[in-house]
Design a protein around this nucleic acid. Structure first.
Lengths: 204, 204
DNA sequence: TCGATTTGATTGAACGTTCATTCAAAGAAG
DNA sequence: CTTCTTTGAATGAACGTTCAATCAAATCGA
């Protein structure tokens, strides 16, 4: 996702969101000041106040924008190859050699998630975004069950589980220097899916 | 763990750590000021500087203290009932009606973990603490394999996976308003352990 | 068409606050 | 008296936010 987002923002509001995102990426939330946003924007920090109420409103708007982007990209359209799609998602998630843009994106979102702990506006956002993301996973699973690629299982429970693992993975990757456990977890998750989700050989 | 920690700190340094922990719990890292620590301590903020270099050194010392506490409590002593112990850990983790002290503790640690994203000192701490915690889980698993309660499986990989799920769970709980997914994830994790870790009926 | 007027965008300077940190001096203990 | 502990006041930097002042473009009236 990170690539195409904010690629050619035409209007000022969008430019500001882009600058906010870049600034967030570079300095993290703790290092995010109206000044760095202004620098990134190559315009005065005061300009931002002409378009957004205050700093938090700005960051929330940025978050909202990214979510909309996700929705329009991965919005639940028809799933043609559930098994392949699930594998693809896992590959994506566990890729170790992934370019830093994607990892930076995840880390940025993660840092904002930490703010949700003590800020209800952020919490509401992530409650919603988790629901959307989970639904997106569950859709793939349901399609697989319908097509016989997956056995009769609880798509919602599995989607929630996958999401929890994903989130845990992102957090661990961003907050430790180790990476070796990644392949272990990936392998275990494959085993889990193999034995509980993927249809048994020649059962359909 | 939260209960007994900092229960009767005798010397000043420990009192300061206790006050830091309480302040962290109440206001979160973002709201942590030398002033609130002083208030909690019922002494002047300047006193803290007589004992600790600066704010970050203090928070890191606090984190370190909590980790030592964990090590001395759950340090790898002999495991007598691996299966029961594993279940106990899971119950603990997924308990929804848990008193807020435990949840507050996890949330506090989590918030500090978010700092690790942009601060290598914190990152080093969590790298180490993850390793310790994982080893603690792996010890239980290894004991189970030796005793025949668990089948031949990769204890390290499973421990890493469990830990990833745990961390993901804590993060999701602390950053969203939902809780329903908790039981789903717990159930899936049980299935996973049942089919891949627990020994088959009457196999030993 | 051309000047006047409004509107929105943009800026730089300034304000007020919060906070970590320092330090000289007071207090307590032995 | 000396040493360690503790304090209150002061410092200085960082930062979010405000605002009066420009400026360009659009709108309008005649």
């Amino acid at each position: 996702m990170p690539s195409d987002v904010f690629d050619d923002p035409t209007d000022t509001r969008e430019k500001i969101l882009a600058a906010t995102y870049r600034s967030l990426n570079e300095h993290g939330y703790a290092g995010l000041t109206m000044q760095t946003i202004g620098d990134e924007l190559e315009q005065s920090p005061s300009l931002v106040y002409h378009h957004y109420e205050n700093k938090d409103a700005l960051v929330l708007a940025c978050l909202e924008y990214l979510l909309e982007q996700f929705e329009s990209e991965f919005g639940n359209d028809a799933v043609d190859d559930p098994k392949g799609q699930l594998e693809e998602i896992l590959e994506w998630w566990f890729a170790t050699d992934v370019d830093d843009e994607w990892h930076g994106f995840l880390t940025t979102i993660l840092e904002l998630r930490a703010r949700a702990v003590h800020d209800s506006e952020y919490r509401e956002h992530f409650t919603r975004s988790d629901r959307i993301f989970k639904e997106s996973l569950a859709t793939v699973l349901r399609a697989g069950i319908d097509s016989g690629a997956f056995r009769e299982c609880d798509p919602d429970a599995i989607a929630e589980t996958l999401q929890t693992v994903f989130i845990g993975t992102v957090l661990r990757r961003s907050s430790t220097d180790d990476d070796e456990w990644l392949t272990d977890v990936h392998a275990e998750l494959d085993s889990y899916l193999d034995s509980l989700v993927h249809a048994r050989e020649r059962s359909q």
